[in-house]
Design a protein around this nucleic acid. Structure first.
Lengths: 135, 135
DNA sequence: GCTGATCATAGGCAGATGCTTACGATTGGA
DNA sequence: TCCAATCGTAAGCATCTGCCTATGATCAGC
């Protein structure tokens, strides 16, 4: 057998990342899904909740209580969409952005350490290649 | 924001891999965990069930019915360990190895296709780097 | 104007998951 | 020799997950 399956290799990396991220996120009072929502909203400030659910790969019926929690903490707001009164545009608040950036700083530091087993060139190659596989 | 989180990137790749693998494994009558067990046994023929559970990251109390199913299909056997009558050495049968290799062939073909967006050099770099991150 | 589709929301359901406890058989060290 | 630890097994529990249905408000096309 020349090598492990890609699934096994990527799976083990993801496992490590999750194990390392969980305590960092917990320290900021966020779950993985909540962090995922905040991250996506920072990129795409406004859209329907359904689109948000699809974008992060979360169940739309389960997204509602998750957004309730984040809105209750003042990290995001649901605004009526003037063009479509059925839809609610979801937007990060300044508090939400601050919380996201504080958590992200810790996560980035963890990632740097995890990547430090690779040379700078290897890191560049990896980061160039991953988005193309993730498409 | 210079780039996505590693967790998001690796997570999306794993999501793609799982989505592509599931139907292939199903065609061979295997779940992801069963495939994982067979794969690991092909590398390490004998060991305790607990070590097997730890090696593939599966709950040891949930491994038993999974092994029952695979043994029931004749893909593996539990043999008494003469040196330690508490322990059961788990070993692939020829049928188990054949089933594994048939499934693996399909999965490898899928992986080739997925990797084909990368140049040969990029594929080499990626495959050299992944095991070091997966440690 | 009416009808079917869309959106947010609520609720339920089956299965998977991680974790814990218990128990009988067996082992190894005090 | 006896006691604690280990192994396989069984069972239970809270939670997460994907999926499916329903409902009220709103929209868009006929």
């Amino acid at each position: 057998m020349e090598r492990d399956d890609l699934g096994a290799l990527f799976g083990r990396v993801v496992r490590r990342l999750i194990a390392a991220e969980r305590p960092l996120l917990e320290a900021h009072g966020l779950t993985m899904w909540e962090y995922s929502v905040l991250t996506h909203l920072a990129k795409q400030p406004t859209e329907t909740q359904q689109a948000l659910a699809a974008a992060i790969g979360y169940d739309k019926s389960r997204l509602i209580p998750l957004l309730d929690g984040l809105a209750g903490q003042g990290l995001l707001v649901r605004e009526p969409d003037p063009a479509n009164r059925r839809a609610h545009a979801v937007r990060l608040t300044p508090d939400g952005l601050a919380r996201l950036e504080a958590a992200r700083a810790d996560i980035r530091a963890m990632e740097e350490e995890l990547l430090s087993v690779l040379s700078a060139a290897e890191q560049r190659h990896l980061l160039a290649v991953l988005p193309r596989l993730a498409d």
